[in-house]
Design a protein around this nucleic acid. Structure first.
Lengths: 376, 376
DNA sequence: CTGAAAGCGCTAACAG
DNA sequence: CTGTTAGCGCTTTCAG
């Protein structure tokens, strides 16, 4: 087909037939489609975006021209003109951790339903890398960001980019200008604790708190344990708390070893995620300590693998699907300016998933029988 | 600062001070920076992209203007002009499977080193969704695609978008126009089989083959087992093969149950991924069958969780890092046209990771002692 | 070494 | 209901 015909009616520059991009095939543009279908570019644009109403015959002619010419809209041009890329950034510390893998999967799937693409941005969860990301030009590609901070806290709220719509995951940074979505917190650990008490445990150990960080998932979870124990008239023995800032399997294994090494008696372990719990399970098994008898173990996140440990792990499903959906909705609200004003604190529902690792103690073996003294 | 000064020297339209995008703050553009620094936009552009050489004083003035005005380059405009977005698509079936989570993490991390963003595109691994993706406009956002097909095969090679640089993962589609990268195949299963033979096993079961699919990871892996057994003068008993198209934990659990139900004797299980192996471990444990004695279990992928099963799982590290790096490099080659011509078949190195689940049988207990007759 | 100007492909006024 | 046109912000010849 002669170039003349395809460009019919297009004023065009004197004569600059250079390729659209270096080393690329000259693109088929909307002008070509318009010329081919005998309509204006506006008509093509509107029909493709399903804006306005057109005669069926016109629509068909345009659509035919599109497929005949193999026309593909140019995302960059659309984005430049409309100011939207249709993509959001998801910044997570570590995709290898099942929780974040689940979160990413849930986010990508929920986004798909709204025709939104997700760009994954890893932060290794360190302060530097998180700050680096916030100042990075990489964020420019997308319309906004869902950010799960692991190191940054309330004090760093000012580092959040003012001009990039942001939704925060977790409760590390709440109350700033950005919306935040969090899942299971103190209420969930309280429920877990009550569950353990109900199964006859009294000396409940905790793995995964961090010492110096207020307002984090860890500290609020620890609080929940404290409160529930207090309600039962029990004071949490400091020797039963093992701090861990990193929550991988190996950290859980080390934490359980530490617990055993301390020689303190315990009949349950609350690990602040399933990875820690799996590691603990491993160390307990190695040390010949039975689960759920004499020691119960609970995790958080309801990772797929939790159903397949030995014994299957009781855990808290913190509802990643809901978290993803809430975050996406909140971000879209902000981008569209459907919602303005100060940050909202959204909360997703959680659910206790009871499995073998916390089965009630069968005999009347009171846990208090076992000797134990707090190791300073 | 008065608008006049910021726009000094800029011809500008009569008077159309509309915002750059509906409902957005009017952007700071390169023209503003140029005017502020008293240079031309070309100079700003070149300095920001580190092209050409400039007087140090000029560079400083420009950089100062950039930070003073809070200028941020516009990715869409850059992309429109240059024909590159700097983002690649990674299409994987299921982020929740540790293998793909690892792959995604490795890809994102490797891409970061080259300043490339990764857009995750989920296909549920079904034929329809994979075909849907290939024809989708969603791919237009990025410069190319790394695609891990799970359902599509050699026959579907024509469905691959001709105008989108593509690299395929796995050996389902090889020999077409696209480069492909695959990891452990028949050579790895052969090595695993030899390892099991060396530990005294003779009746080796296989979980995860698919019946009708030639040229897949599954069939080539099965082939490796066959060959290695043949070299030892053993014919693989059909009753020891359990087909599974899906490789989640629950499928492994069901497969092992099936094996037990068949009443056929076996002293080892080769599962085609770690998830299957974990599921098998679970079923064996429930049935009171010891691991590694009398039954050894091996997986594939070296998932993080494999080191924490009971017993720890022997597995094959198929080198996702290498796979990610190879795929990224190949894709960049194609996008930059550094490489042209027919698709290359790249292969990443793998490595056997020996753990407790395949510890040699201690006693001289010949596995043949156990009665066993091929079912059907 | 620097500046002016064209235009990537698309959308959104604004007319008809 | 349809056509014309002016840029979105940036890169890039092409002159100076």
């Amino acid at each position: 087909m002669p170039d003349d015909e395809m460009r019919a009616g297009v004023p065009g520059p004197p004569s600059a037939p250079e390729a659209s991009a270096p080393g690329r095939v000259p693109a088929v543009t909307m002008r070509h489609v318009a010329a081919h279908a005998g309509v204006s570019v506006k008509t093509v644009s509107d029909i493709l975006r399903e804006t306005g109403s057109f005669r069926a015959s016109t629509r068909e002619r345009v659509l035919a021209a599109v497929s005949e010419l193999g026309y593909r809209p140019n995302a960059a041009a659309r984005s430049l003109r409309s100011g939207r890329s249709g993509a959001y950034t998801l910044a997570v510390p570590e995709l290898r951790l099942p929780y974040f893998a689940q979160l990413a999967a849930a986010t990508v799937e929920a986004a798909r339903e709204s025709g939104i693409e997700i760009v994954i941005e890893p932060t290794d969860g360190t302060r530097e890398s998180e700050l680096e990301l916030l100042g990075s030009e990489r964020l420019r590609l997308t319309d906004g960001m869902i950010f799960a901070p692991l190191a940054l806290s309330e004090a760093d709220a000012s580092a959040l980019p003012a001009d990039i719509p942001t939704v925060l995951l977790g409760d590390r940074i709440v109350g700033g200008p950005a919306d935040s979505v969090c899942g299971a917190g103190d209420d969930a650990t309280a429920a877990v604790t009550r569950h353990l008490l109900a199964t006859g445990r009294r000396r409940i150990a905790v793995i995964g708190s961090h010492p110096g960080s207020a307002g984090t998932a860890a500290s609020s979870r620890l609080l929940g344990v404290r409160h529930a124990l207090a309600d039962a008239g029990i004071v949490l023995d400091p020797a039963l708390i093992v701090d861990r800032a990193i929550w991988h399997r190996r950290d859980g294994a080390a934490a359980a070893q530490e617990l055993l090494r301390r020689g303190v008696a315990f009949d349950a372990v609350i690990a602040f995620n399933d990875m820690l719990a799996v590691g603990a399970l491993r160390s307990l098994s190695r040390a010949g300590v039975g689960v759920p008898d004499p020691v119960a173990v609970v995790g958080f996140d309801n990772s797929p693998e939790a159903a397949f440990t030995e014994p299957p792990l009781t855990t808290v499903d913190i509802g990643v699907q809901a978290i993803a959906r809430l975050a996406l909705g909140a971000l879209t609200d902000r981008i569209d300016r459907t919602v303005t004003g100060p940050g909202r604190a959204l909360r997703a529902d959680w659910r206790l998933v009871e499995r073998g690792s916390t089965r009630p103690l069968s005999g009347a073996s009171a846990p208090d029988q076992r000797a134990g003294s707090p190791a300073t």
